[in-house]
Nucleic acid binder design. Structure first.
Lengths: 189, 189
DNA sequence: TAGATATGATACAAATATGTTTCATAAGTG
DNA sequence: CACTTATGAAACATATTTGTATCATATCTA
């Protein structure tokens, strides 16, 4: 059960996923020609590996979600509390800013494909479970709805990647800021 | 100096701005045919009033920014403190969710046009001034950078409009939630 | 090394979007 | 009401993009 794929295919696929993620996250209207050029791969090869544009987008999205899963898989074991899990999550996911940006844009666009939708919802559900755990733990204020907290997590992801355009900052420091904001807001105590 | 514009032009323009704002905020790839159809206006008329697609987008963006200015103009007088101004701002701007969504998407896309860029930066600057005022007032924590707070405001706008997709909620209640989060985060005190 | 297979270049077809022009008709204006 | 002007429909040209097919060449595998 070694890798069944030709080395050339693996290389092309990796290059296309990377280029597609990069270009499409910056500009949804990027063409397949653009992506092939950025990947330094012939346009024919792109169409050979992905029948349609949708298929490429889906492959990239799945790739991003896998990266997320890998980056967060350790949290379950390491987290000492529900709140701590959020801190670890910010630290784990902020470095994946390109993946984050891509998924944010695609998740708005691609509401047709049931397969993708299922993965998105699964991802959202994991955050929701985290929120509910922290709430049950007594860490979260009770007059704040679970739904809002779930959205706030996404909102802090968004905050972090727009802030990286303005202030060049360490991913880790950004995660600390987001976590502090999440817990206590930004006012003087 | 009465309105120099024919009533028909005014009506067409208003319909096109509205339809364009609506469709483009949901899907950046909406075509001019789509927009004309949504506006119940002939495609020829669209091209007569806006030479290019860029011009239409710019007109919509300016329209949105004007709406923002109008909605927030009262804050300067009414705000009793720097923090209170943020609360008023959330209350004033959250109802403009379509305008907000449009501007967020366009501001990422349209980084060429200097005129638009200038308006965006002016808008961002007003938020920055608000943040700096609140900081000088002693309301904001000193170990949190001004840049982060500025981005957080945008992030809470984002949070609010994704939350409206999941939980149907009053704009006003949403603004309260955002303000509370801004001030104290979401943890139990 | 020999055979299998992925690749890039090219040409091609079809669909779609942008932008222009024309003209009879409808609507506002004075 | 008479006149001016905006409108919608249609035809048209152009550019871009998607997707397919072919074929000589380069690269991997066994």
């Amino acid at each position: 059960m070694a890798d069944q794929l030709d080395a050339r295919i693996q290389k092309s696929q990796a290059a296309l996923l990377r280029a597609g993620m990069y270009l499409l996250s910056r500009n949804q209207e990027a063409s397949l020609s653009d992506i092939a050029r950025e990947a330094a791969v012939g346009r024919s090869t792109l169409y050979r590996l992905y029948d349609t544009k949708e298929e490429l987008v889906k492959a990239i999205a799945i790739h991003c979600l896998q990266a997320f899963d890998e980056a967060t898989s350790h949290i379950e074991d390491e987290a000492e509390s529900g709140l701590h899990a959020f801190h670890l999550m910010f630290k784990a996911l902020f470095p994946l800013s390109v993946e984050m940006e891509f998924l944010m844009k695609v998740s708005e666009l691609d509401e047709e494909d049931p397969e993708l939708l299922a993965i998105f919802q699964q991802q959202a559900n994991e955050i929701r479970k985290l929120v509910e755990y922290a709430r049950a733990e007594g860490s979260l204020s009770h007059d704040i709805p679970v739904d809002w907290v779930v959205c706030l997590v996404d909102g802090l992801f968004y905050t972090s990647w727009i802030s990286r355009r303005e202030m060049p900052m360490d991913h880790d420091a950004l995660a600390d800021l987001a976590f502090q904001t999440f817990c206590h807001g930004v006012t003087h105590r």
